[in-house]
Design a protein around this nucleic acid. Structure first.
Length: 757
DNA sequence: GTGGGATCGGTTTTT
DNA sequence: CCGATCCCAC
């Protein structure tokens, strides 16, 4: 018996030792799940199971790498042969081998959501449909849902229920759009995120020999975060596990937070039905958090009707009370949070690394950034706009993509006239029409431009572009990806353009491109030799592999910096992580729980699970905060505290900064009265077409003296006095602060302003 | 076809 | 507030 078993409690041990047959491990937050998974695999290998036959699906690629590393320490480098990664990256690897069977090139492009949305917009436009009835986002999510439910375009159009739904929504052509979208992706040699699942399933169904191969190769399957798998994902693993039935699902229904992308708790119920002799292990002891934190979490989650029976408990001490931070605005919230971090660092000897700030929406990071910067506290933001989504990066990537896969339509569109090469909208439209008629890719049409009625300058330019891409391809075969990328950056003129741009943003963009090039270099130079008998999936250092890799990075895979810094991220991104001190911000009704999630009990319960996840990230110190008003889309709005706060028992809550709150009134003014530099001169109805005119030379000593001159404005806003005008500039949107009478202070964005010359 | 200004619209979470 | 898109003058 291996020594590491001593480190485990009884139920953990049982879960580790149960190797064969269907297993479900219900693992509460902080219950040592990763440890169990790691030891379980290590134990399997020690018992003589070939690592080569184990497939382990994790939630992030980083988690996979870490787990592999830990197993390696126990079992040696055999562990390299375990097939590990996220659903998407694992299936992308399978598809790279067998995509040709489905008519895709093996170096298929992976469309990210931006690509998908842009393609949908193009299609809607081509069909001359109203883009308000067929909003790209909605169409996309409808298609995405269909794919996640493994419904083909054909089946979609034949499904009476779906069709009647679409009719009811006044969107009868949804099926058409799905069909065309799928076709266009196919012609482009591209798969979107959902295709990676959908097409894998298709592959296994259509090619029994492929299914047979994987069924016998992967005799052992493990799925982490099972509560967040969707129907397609579950269907695939079920198929692969069908022969040996050695399938182990690990998850926690209380932490299911991805229903919006098709994850369903049904999977857990189905799992029990599909495998009647299932062994279930419950890990209920929490090793992570203080009693108070566990108590708070339990009090929250009991409000959900929809859940499996289990009780999370801990042997840890009570710990401190949970702090409740009330502020008057999001900026103040951030400021108090930063102050508190500073204080904690002093008093409890914590490092920046020990802190996490969690929030519901990415937009909330802004105020925290400012506040932390002011106190010189280093921070890292995970998620949000990622490096690879920046314009300059996407541009270069588009060149690389089209070099690898000429048919990539979205890449083509992106760069066909960037930098400007005299190919305008009309030409693009004409080529697209021809490609659609011929049911082929745009690139192919351009290659044979002489067979079309496009002539003259336009044809020449298209041809030149096509030849250029082809020359890149030849180059790629002779040189490596880094050299090609560098060549592209230079020869396309993008690098030069940015180099000459000496504005701050220009310099940043230039640096970003350098960083991208370095990244490519690193990737292509990593050792390509891997030990073991894994020829089939030998490590691929090609440009195609690189491109697929970067689109499948999860937010947690984001390059970790070695610096000691506070981590900021959405709660979704915080899954699986833990921190000594956690701050959860923006606990306001309509923000958290989100106003978008109040239509059904199910949605509200998912929000509550999200809060549950957030709370259980904390080990020792937990601070919850809300603001009584918040900037939303430029407006300052009054906010009610989140209903979730009321679900936490009062006796473990401590108000923070009582005395500070007494000054709230004063702080509010201080915070919001911006220096008034300009005076509104004209009167009348200020609107976009009739901007208010301001005197640029005006210097006010008493801001409250400035009145809105117009009667219309008075009617609209009451007899309020303007206390501040912020953000003035020629033709710039301005924000005007009113001080109402007997009302809450209110800020309104209301007019354009023009500076008097 | 290009570039800039004006206008509009979207704002949850992610692979 | 920010980005996409529309519209217009060159």
């Amino acid at each position: 018996m291996s020594s590491y078993l001593n480190e485990l409690n009884e139920s953990q041990q049982q879960a580790v030792l149960q190797i064969d047959g269907p297993v479900m491990i219900v693992a509460g937050p902080g219950s040592g799940k990763t440890r169990v998974l790691t030891y379980r695999i290590a134990n399997m290998i020690e018992k003589g199971i070939d690592p080569f036959s184990i497939m382990s699906l994790t939630f992030t690629n980083k988690a996979a790498a870490e787990m592999r590393h830990r197993i390696e320490k126990i079992c040696g480098n055999e562990a390299r042969n375990i097939f590990m990664g996220t659903f998407h990256s694992v299936f992308a690897r399978l598809l790279r081998i067998d995509a040709p069977k489905l008519g895709y090139p093996s170096n298929f492009t992976i469309y990210d959501s931006q690509d998908s949305l842009s393609l949908i917009k193009t299609i809607v436009k081509e069909l001359q449909l109203n883009d308000k009835t067929y909003k790209a986002n909605q169409v996309f999510s409808r298609i995405s849902n269909a794919k996640n439910a493994l419904i083909s375009p054909k089946a979609y159009k034949l499904d009476a229920e779906i069709m009647s739904e679409d009719m009811q929504m006044q969107k009868p052509l949804m099926g058409q759009l799905y069909e065309i979208y799928a076709k266009r992706c196919f012609q482009s040699g591209a798969m979107d995120f959902d295709d990676l699942l959908y097409k894998t399933y298709e592959l296994l169904v259509k090619f029994p020999e492929v299914l047979y191969h994987y069924q016998h190769r992967f005799k052992y399957l493990m799925i982490d975060e099972f509560q967040d798998t969707n129907f397609a994902q579950y269907s695939i693993v079920k198929k692969i596990a069908d022969v040996y039935q050695n399938i182990c699902a690990v998850g926690d229904d209380a932490q299911s937070i991805y229903a919006f992308r098709g994850a369903t708790i049904e999977n857990i119920l189905n799992f029990q039905k599909d495998y009647p002799d299932l062994r279930v292990f419950k890990l209920e002891q929490n090793y992570r958090s203080t009693k108070n934190i566990v108590k708070a979490a339990n009090h929250l989650i009991v409000n959900n009707k929809n859940q499996l029976q289990k009780t999370i408990w801990t042997d840890n001490g009570d710990g401190e009370a949970i702090k409740l931070l009330k502020s008057s605005s999001d900026n103040e919230e951030a400021k108090l949070t930063a102050d508190l971090i500073f204080e904690y660092k002093m008093r409890h000897h914590l490092k920046n690394n020990d802190f996490a700030i969690l929030y519901r929406t990415n937009a909330q990071s802004r105020s925290y950034e400012e506040a932390l910067r002011r106190l010189n506290i280093p921070y890292v933001i995970y998620g949000g706009m990622s490096f690879y989504q920046r314009k300059e990066i996407k541009d270069i990537i588009a060149y690389l993509r089209i070099t690898v896969n000429h048919n990539d339509e979205e890449a083509w569109r992106r760069i066909i006239n960037y930098p400007v090469r005299g190919i305008g909208k009309t030409t693009v439209e004409r080529v697209t029409v021809i490609a659609n008629e011929r049911e082929t890719s745009i690139f192919e049409v351009c290659e044979n431009i002489y067979t079309t009625d496009i002539t003259g300058k336009a044809a020449q330019n298209l041809m030149a572009f096509t030849m250029m891409i082809k020359s890149y391809k030849t180059m790629l075969d002779k040189q490596n990806a880094f050299e090609l990328a560098t060549h592209i950056a230079k020869s396309s003129g993008i690098l030069k353009e940015l180099y000459e741009d000496k504005t701050v943003e220009g310099v940043v963009r230039y640096e970003n491109i350098q960083e991208l090039l370095n990244g490519i270099k690193e990737f292509s130079e990593e050792d390509t030799v891997e030990e073991g008998h894994e020829e089939e999936f030998s490590v691929d250092r090609s440009l195609g592999a690189y491109l697929q890799n970067i689109t499948l990075l999860t937010t947690q895979d984001q390059k970790a910096d070695n610096n000691d810094s506070v981590k900021m991220m959405t709660i979704h991104s915080a899954k699986g992580l833990e921190f000594p001190a956690v701050f959860i911000g923006g606990l306001e009704e309509n923000l958290f729980p989100s106003s978008m999630a109040l239509y059904s009990r199910e949605e509200l319960e998912e929000e509550r699970r999200l809060f549950y996840v957030a709370v259980t990230r904390a080990m020792t110190y937990l601070t919850l905060s809300f603001a009584t008003s918040r900037y939303k889309f430029g407006n300052l709005q009054y906010c009610e505290p989140s209903r979730f706060l009321g679900e936490i028992p009062k006796e473990i809550l401590a108000m923070h900064g009582e005395d500070k709150m007494k000054k709230e009134e004063a702080m509010f003014d201080e915070d919001f009265v911006a220096p008034v530099k300009r005076r509104i001169v004209n009167t009348g109805n200020f609107s976009a077409s009739r901007p208010a005119t301001v005197d640029p030379n005006f210097q006010a000593d008493d801001p409250s003296k400035i009145l809105v001159g117009s009667e219309v404005a008075h009617q609209r806003f009451g007899n309020g006095k303007v206390v501040a005008i912020d953000g003035l500039g020629v033709n710039k949107m301005a924000t005007i602060f009113f001080q109402g009478e007997g009302q809450k202070k209110l800020m309104l964005k209301f007019a354009k302003l023009k500076v008097l010359e």
